[in-house]
Design a binder for these strands. Structure first.
Lengths: 303, 303
DNA sequence: GGATTCGATGACTTTTAATCATGGCTGACG
DNA sequence: CGTCAGCCATGATTAAAAGTCATCGAATCC
């Protein structure tokens, strides 16, 4: 196979500018080098690649079809190099250029995408991949190294992972805006008597504790619907029932909705969530940035 | 934004080899340059990127985590550069580095994939994209420049395209191996009396002419099933009926099957297919290669 | 015909990459 | 403890590559 050496990006860049400029003289002006420098560089590139890129017609350079195809390929490569530059900048900033995040559904539709959006706003070079899964799977994914960090409700336990509590807050009650309870400033467990409830189809997201609480107060509910946590606000809005859930997820789902309101609930049901990561990640610069950004975002959520 | 300059692939290559080799001295031996050359190159790269890639511990270089991440990024870039090299080699060989082919279903499952496979065997650097669609859409796709070449049954007409006939052959009759007609050396239109037929659900693939022929000979068929042309052999094999179709498609579908046999059919129904391309493609080197390869393959099909 | 712009090229300079020579550090071994 | 081997870094230098300078010929325009 005939060899093709690409060792000089500069000559590819000169070629690219030459094609865009239409003449060696104009390319030279654009690049701040001499016209003969451009001419030399082109001749060297044509010799090196073994392809005639320009015809010399009447003392003018006329691009060949091959030149246009090479141009497309060079644009592609320059895109790749730009990605490399971004990764290097992220490497400088974070100590890592790629971040794999796993989160539970309760956080996966609002808080974590906002966190990611803010991180990327600050650092476009960062590459983040994100997946949503159960708490148990988040832990396994981070333990095995398939994800770098994970967001889960607490408590969880893992001998391999560092577990960092980010927020402890109290559950809220979601009710349709036209529901009698909407006029209350606080909903109590007694108010759940004869109400339909919408609860999460996932454990450890407040569902079990709520039913326990109701039972311990001898409260009978009219019925319950289990739903994917991502759709609870929509369920409540459509009169399926009322719900008691963590305010992070609730706030995320209520953005832009006026047909569902959120009220404090008593007695208090504590809700915590946090971040998990492997021990070898504890000193990675990116964590500081993630913590800082995350804390800023949490200030926008109710206590 | 702090600048990061990637102008020297050589220094990235030296870095890559250094990480793989484990020491500057070994990397130097591998690359055929001096140890101090490797040391200089590394220092220059670290300075240029603003990232410390190696710790100097007790006169040994110890890679930092950032070094491993950069290494992954460089491997990615080198893959991209390899793709560029392949494209350049294809550009030299064909005058183009990418080829977009559109074909009708009758050719899309056998002949054209074989053609593509053979072209790529000869030239790995080539990038081919392939799509399957009706004759009419093939013509439109090539006319509009979304595909470079197309394969269709003939006749077709287009004022914009060059139409090149590749093969004219006669239709064949497919019958189940255990069918009485399988023992014949030739099936005639009279044999279709009271038989179930499987015909293509696409026009211009022998279906209309066959029904016409039967009608003109006062032949009554027992029934017909219209099928996607790609599944006709499977239909025949399962006793849905017998079929009369072009031998290219038939041969492609019978590969590896012993439960369906192919017999000459009379009277003859001619079938042609060909390649279409735009006028500005007529002198592209790739066409010669495609014609040559295509003609080789066609020799393996029945006349 | 002269002015302007273009590209190519011989001769040359500047810049970059790498070498040469050397020194210091570390660990293994006798 | 001294010697040896292997490592890395560095001042001084060289070789190679990139680009400039000066110039020429060709084409177009006024």
């Amino acid at each position: 196979m005939a060899d093709v050496n690409i060792h000089s990006l500069k000559s590819l860049a000169i070629f690219k500018t030459l094609l865009e400029a239409g003449s060696a003289s104009q390319a030279a002006r654009t690049l701040g080098i001499t016209q003969s420098g451009v001419s030399r560089s082109l001749a060297q590139l044509e010799d090196n690649l073994g392809i005639q890129l320009f015809l010399r017609e009447k003392n003018r350079l006329v691009a060949t079809p091959e030149a246009y195809e090479l141009y497309e390929e060079i644009l592609r490569l320059m895109g790749n190099i730009e990605e490399l530059r971004h990764s290097i900048l992220a490497l400088k900033e974070f100590g890592t250029s790629r971040l794999r995040i796993a989160a539970i559904p309760g956080l996966a539709f609002g808080f974590v995408p906002r966190l990611i959006g803010t991180l990327l706003e600050e650092n476009r070079g960062f590459s983040i991949s994100f997946d949503m899964m159960s708490s148990h799977d988040v832990l396994r994914e981070v333990e095995s190294g398939h994800a770098d960090i994970g967001f889960v409700t607490l408590p969880v336990s893992s001998r391999l992972l560092r577990i960092e509590e980010w927020l402890t807050t109290q559950a809220r009650c979601l009710v349709p805006a036209n529901h009698p309870l909407a006029s209350r400033t606080e909903v109590t467990v007694e108010d759940l008597q004869n109400e339909y409830l919408v609860i999460s189809n996932q454990p450890n997201v407040g569902a079990d504790p709520l039913l326990h609480l109701a039972a311990s107060h001898s409260i009978s509910i009219a019925g319950k619907t289990e739903s994917n946590i991502g759709a609870i606000a929509a369920m409540v809005a459509n009169g399926v029932g009322i719900s008691v859930m963590n305010p992070i997820t609730a706030t995320d789902q209520l953005v832009g909705r006026t047909d569902v309101v959120m009220r404090p609930f008593s007695p208090r049901i504590s809700f915590s969530f946090g971040m998990v990561y492997r021990e070898d990640w504890k000193n990675v610069q990116a964590l500081d940035s993630i913590r800082r950004t995350g804390n800023e975002l949490l200030k926008t959520y109710p206590d």
